[in-house]
Design a protein around this nucleic acid. Structure first.
Length: 635
RNA sequence: GGGCCCGUAGCGCAGUCAGGAAGCGCGGCGGCCUCCUAAGCCGCAGGUCCCGGGUUCGAUUCCCGGCGGGCCCGCCA
């Protein structure tokens, strides 16, 4: 028994259908709709207007009257017709047997309902530019991606987590040049050091350009330029304080170089061509920075099975030029001002193509430049080649990518459709998430305006340490688990499709509706079980034979868990699981406060309550694992 | 100008896909630790579900039109 909730619902459907059949109406169990009832009405509800649609010739009122005579049995202990709903209360004693035996038998695998077909799935996520530290946006991406990986694995799929290393774009040349100017390695965390260089060289070049522009500007334009220049200089001053000496070296290069941007474009082209010394120079900074990024990811418990280098997979392999040649051969490419343009817009005129490529009707698709007039390719062009690589290794590819890329991802799918991937809409999924806002500002890695993931982690862990110390129960060494648990829950508990404003107060709120709240509830359950074991009560002595009304809500919730995991995995909705865990934790805390377990009125009550606590503990544990949240033993 | 997303209690959000019984947290107010960890629990206050039409027996949910906010429409990524 993998899914007690489904078993329960099937039981209800059968009873309702049999009841109708006994009254002379031919109804199949599958035609009966069962949903969760609002708490005050019961556990489950059958909307009777749906029955009146299925049963010909009966009005809702007649159906309601009819169900007044419904006698529940099996897993249902009572029923009542209210507001055109048949409200049902589950028999917690009988249902508890079903749920408990499932939890005990499956243990750490409780909640994992195997999918009908086992798919090979690639989840590509984080994929941050390897030239600066991860910021809060990447944190949202990685936490979501990682929980998708875990959820899909729980469904029995063969899932690989991939990190796409974008080492081809022009921005890489900036970092590489800056890194070589200052002579490589510096102090501090590696990715932060590289990020500083990257920001600094960007700002320096920007200032140089603005000053050039200022010479021929006047009035408002000049004022605007001056204000930008002073803002950038102020940022540079800050960086200079953090890393004395570096900025001066970069400044020297920017000053003495006639056209720094042209120089960087040249460097970029040489990298694309695979020039050995440029590759060596560039890879040095990228590897260096990735070490820092990996350190952050390790700390977060986010791991990858594959690091896919854009240069190797798409450029040096020749895959991108193959793609361009093939698209040209299909007659969907035209030349505009020396550039090659893929007419995604023409392709999107067909409704059939849209359906197959997963483009919503009405969504405006624009043409897409494949090759610049200087012969170099663009990110999305190379992404076509990369996607082909991924599609050859998986049944389904899930890309966790910001919502801003929606159009580019649509163009990508259309290109793949044209190249023969007729089911690309189903196989290549843009798992889109909204951006993370900083109150007041707009983040930009290039300008160095961002909150790094490391800062956020540090702050959360420090806060956790404080809280643990304040209480004196737990181990301050668990601050890492609690702080990071808080962070992950924060990002997971909100639907990905909504803009998230990064609010320190909410991230560091460890009360209800938070990671630490769920962890705390788990620890409480664990504490009871620990004491039981100190009393030499063996797990096999526990049973749910004497559960009652008090345990009713917990039994229902625990039984629902596998179904929640299934829904969360199949619909790619980790937030469903986060919200479920919060509900279970809340319900458990209520129970904890209201009913003594170890000091239950009778021995048989005690053993049954312990069995329920055991179920809750197992469920919270398995659920947190799926969100990538670790739990301490005490806190 | 076109497209996509969002608008639900003072604030942050769930519910909207498959229409049917308005929910959670924070904040506010008031209670609860001689009893398994108070990161907890209980109670109270707080809502024209942005507005206007339409479809429907029934709309926060679907459709149309507005309004407000965000994002995208680059030979950037």
């Amino acid at each position: 028994m993998y899914n007690p909730h489904e078993f329960l619902v099937d039981n209800v459907k059968r009873q309702v259908a049999e009841f109708l059949v006994s009254k002379g109406f031919a109804v199949e169990p599958a035609q009966v709709e069962v949903r969760k009832a609002p708490k005050t009405f019961g556990d489950l509800a059958v909307p009777l207007f749906t029955i009146s649609k299925v049963v010909k010739g009966l009005s809702v009122e007649e159906v309601s009257t009819l169900f007044g005579g419904f006698k529940p049995s099996g897993l249902v202990k009572s029923s009542k017709v209210e507001n055109n709903f048949l409200n049902l209360v589950v028999d917690e004693k009988r249902y508890a047997e079903v749920v408990y035996s499932s939890v005990v038998r499956l243990g750490d695998n409780y909640g994992f309902v195997p999918a009908e077909t086992r798919e090979r799935i690639i989840v590509e996520h984080v994929s941050a530019n390897p030239i600066h530290p991860l910021h809060v946006g990447h944190l949202r991406n990685g936490v979501l991606g990682d929980s998708l990986v875990r959820l899909l694995r729980a469904r029995g799929h063969e899932v690989k987590a991939h990190f796409y290393v974008d080492d081809v774009g022009l921005q890489v040349a900036y970092a590489a040049k800056a890194f070589s100017i200052v002579g490589g390695e510096g102090q501090g965390k590696k990715d932060h050091f590289v990020g500083t260089l990257y920001t600094a060289i960007n700002l320096l070049i920007e200032v140089k350009k603005l000053r050039e522009k200022a010479k021929s500007a006047s009035g408002d334009e000049l004022a605007e330029i001056n204000s930008k220049v002073s803002e950038y200089l102020w940022r540079l001053g800050e960086l200079s304080e953090k890393f004395p000496g570096l900025i001066e070296k970069l400044l020297e290069w920017v000053e003495k170089t006639e056209d720094p941007e042209a120089e960087l474009r040249r460097l970029n082209r040489m990298y694309e061509e695979g020039d050995p010394s440029t590759v060596k120079l560039t890879r040095r900074v990228l590897d260096y920075c990735l070490e820092g990024i990996r350190e952050t990811l390790d700390r977060l418990g986010i791991s990858f099975d594959s690091w896919d280098w854009e240069s190797e997979l798409t450029v040096w392999s020749g895959a991108t030029s193959d793609v361009i040649d093939k698209l040209r051969g299909l007659g969907l490419v035209e030349r505009r001002d020396g550039a090659l343009v893929f007419r995604a817009d023409l392709l999107a005129e067909s409704e059939d193509v849209r359906r197959a490529a997963g483009i919503p009707p009405g969504f405006t698709v624009t043409p897409m430049t494949l090759v610049r007039s200087d012969g170099t390719t663009l990110y999305t062009t190379r992404d076509i080649a990369y996607s082909i690589w991924k599609l050859s290794r998986a049944d389904r590819v899930i890309n966790v990518i910001a919502v801003q890329q929606t159009l580019a991802q649509a163009q990508l799918r259309l290109a793949l459709y044209a190249l023969g991937y007729r089911d690309v809409g189903r196989r290549l999924i843009h798992y889109s998430y909204e951006m993370v806002n900083l109150p007041g500002t707009r983040m930009s890695s290039r300008r160095g305006v961002y909150v790094s993931a490391d800062e956020v982690i540090e702050e959360a862990v420090a806060r956790a340490k404080e809280e643990i110390a304040k209480r004196g129960v737990g181990d301050v060494g668990d601050a890492e688990k609690v702080g990071i648990g808080a962070l992950k829950f924060f990002f997971l508990s909100q639907t990905p499709g909504k803009v998230l404003t990064f609010d320190w107060k909410r991230v560091l709120d460890f009360e209800q509706n938070s990671g630490p709240f769920v962890q705390y509830s788990y620890v409480r359950a664990l504490g009871i079980l620990r004491k039981a074991s100190e009393e030499h009560i063996r797990p096999d002595e526990l049973n749910v034979g004497d559960v009652g009304e008090e345990e009713h809500p917990l039994i229902l919730l625990v039984g629902e868990f596998p179904n929640v995991v299934k829904e969360a995995a199949d619909n790619l909705r980790p937030d469903l699981l986060a919200s479920y865990l919060n509900t279970l934790a809340t319900e458990f805390n209520r129970y904890y406060d209201s009913y003594p377990v170890l000091r239950a009125p009778t021995t048989s009550k005690k053993y049954s309550r312990l069995a329920v606590v055991k179920m809750v503990e197992q469920t919270l544990k398995n659920g947190m694992k799926l969100l990538g949240i670790e739990a301490p033993q005490r806190m």
